[in-house]
Structures are given as structure tokens and as C-alpha cells.
């Protein structure tokens, strides 16, 4: 299955910069008020090949962000195993960078200092100053390096969060609706930017989105979750070469299929 996915563009993906991420029978839940257990993930298994771009779709509150937190290593799964290149994921690591649903920039740091956060935390900022400038330029914020987060618009803050992730040269980029707050024009532009970043750097991507078109335009494979507790309902391979076209009839057909899987087929 996965082999087929990579086989789509074998020459485009320099796999040494990317990680293979595997999840085997992962279950996870939270303690709900009242002493009960809220089951959120129910037996999720998936395999992301090095350099693969995988999108995750599912109803709100089904457990997508929860899975991302497990993959990031911010929480340990109740049962099941998550691995990166065969090694168990036990803690966060800068090779797996998350762009969260909220930009969560540090309000006491300028945009530049926010983007430099990862390098500073890892103690390599001195050598990496130009990387910070580059990342800011990539997301079009080089003019706002010295602004504070409260001086940014929602979309600009989200782009700053993206830049903060990119400076770290991650092997896996975990994106939780990173473009959710952007206006539709900037959103399309950023989608293109994201694709070229992925193609240039070759990292693996796990993207959560609510936007079916976005998933189909960007990803090689779309995984669809059921309502909570989340199971994988189906996987859809987007067997189209890049650069893709938004008007592509094949993508429109796939969209129909995704809607069907989400139980929204009637609205087609």
C-alpha cells in the first residue's frame, strides 16, 4: 500500500531527510469529568513512508489532534506503539515539528525571536541566524521580524508559526489545520508554498485539515477518520502528479468519494 504511494514520484523525494512514521494499534483516551474514560482513538494503525504527504480528514472532535500529539511525542498512547524509523517515540524531538491549530506564538518575543525559538532551544542559534531570516522570507514576514505577535493579523501569526517550524529542518512536519485561519487567497498561495517546501526539502508530512479540496490538492494519500472514537474508515490514494490543477476532474471525483466516506455523499 505504502510502497505504491511512494512509487508515485520516486525521483522527487530525497528520503534521507525524511522519517518513516508507523503507528500500530494505537488506542488513547482521556479521563472525562465524572470519572469515566473518554475513548478518543480506537485501534489506529498507519504507516507514513519517508517523504510521503499524508492528509487526515475527519469530523470535528474525533481525535485528529490527539493522534498528532501522540506522533509528536507530547503524550504517551494508552496502548499500541508509535515509531519513527523503527525507534519508539517516547518524547518530543525537533526532528518532528508540530504546527498547532493555534499559532501559539510567545507574546513576549518578537516575530524573529519566535521563529528562532527552536534553534535557541537546541543551542544552535549562533550558526543559524541566516536560517531564521530565510524562513521569515519564505512565509513573507521579513518586514515584520521586529513586531510583536499582538501586532500581527491572524493569518500572519499562522505564517510565523509555520516559519518557526520550518527553520528546524524537520524530518516530519506535523500540521494541525495550519491554514485554517487564513483568508482564501492567502490560503491557496500558502498551499502552493507548502508543496514546494515539501518537494524541495523532502520531509514527510502529516496534515490535518477540514478542507477536502486542500487535502486532495496537497496529499498523496488521504486518511479518513470515523467520529469519536476514531478508527480509520478508509484511505484514498490521490494518484495525480504534481503540480496539480484545482479544476482537475479526477480530483473532483475523489472529492465525491471522500464526501461519501464522511457520510456526506448526499450533498454532492
Amino acid at each position: 500500500m505504502v510502497a505504491a504511494a511512494i512509487a508515485l514520484q520516486p525521483e522527487e523525494i530525497p528520503a534521507q531527510n525524511a522519517s518513516r512514521i508507523q503507528a500500530a494499534h494505537v488506542r488513547h483516551g482521556f479521563d472525562a469529568p465524572g470519572g469515566e474514560r473518554l475513548e478518543v482513538l480506537e485501534d489506529v494503525s498507519l504507516d507514513i513512508a519517508p517523504g510521503e504527504f499524508v492528509a487526515l480528514l475527519g469530523p470535528s472532535g474525533c481525535g485528529k489532534s490527539t493522534l498528532l500529539r501522540l506522533v509528536a511525542g507530547l503524550e504517551a498512547a494508552d496502548s499500541g506503539a508509535l515509531t519513527q524509523d523503527g525507534a519508539l517515540i517516547t518524547r518530543p524531538d525537533p526532528s518532528r515539528i508540530v504546527v498547532f491549530q493555534d499559532p501559539t506564538l510567545f507574546p513576549w518575543r518578537t516575530v524573529w525571536d519566535n521563529v528562532a525559538l527552536g534553534l535557541e532551544a537546541q543551542g544552535i542559534l549562533k550558526q543559524g541566524k541566516s536560517r531564521v531570516d530565510e524562513a521569515l522570507k519564505k512565509v513573507g514576514l521579513d518586514g515584520f521580524a521586529r513586531s510583536y505577535p499582538h501586532q500581527l493579523s491572524g493569518g500572519m501569526a499562522q505564517r510565523a508559526a509555520l516559519a518557526r517550524a520550518l527553520v528546524n529542518n524537520p524530518k516530519l512536519l506535523i500540521l494541525d489545520e495550519p491554514l485554517g485561519k487564513l483568508d482564501s487567497l492567502t490560503r491557496l498561495e500558502m498551499q502552493g508554498e507548502l508543496l514546494s517546501l515539501w518537494q524541495r526539502n523532502g520531509f514527510s508530512v502529516l496534515l490535518v485539515t477540514h478542507d477536502i479540496e486542500e487535502a486532495l490538492f496537497l496529499a498523496q494519500r488521504v486518511i479518513i477518520f470515523s467520529p469519536r472514537p476514531a478508527r480509520i474508515v478508509s484511505e484514498i490514494f490521490v494518484d495525480r502528479p504534481y503540480p496539480r490543477h484545482r479544476g482537475d476532474a479526477a480530483l473532483a471525483n475523489l472529492r465525491h468519494e471522500v464526501l461519501n466516506q464522511l457520510g456526506l455523499g448526499k450533498s454532492w
Binding site: 518530543p92 518532528r96 498547532f100 510567545f106 525559538l117
Partner: peptide, 13 residues
């Protein structure tokens, strides 16, 4: 805000 810790930890803090 606990999210600040999450961000910092994933960045290698």
C-alpha cells in the same frame, strides 16, 4: 498556557 510548553518541547527545549 500549557500550549507554550508543548510548542517549546516539540522544538527541543
Amino acid at each position: 498556557n500549557k500550549a507554550y510548553y508543548d510548542v517549546a518541547r516539540t522544538l527541543g527545549a
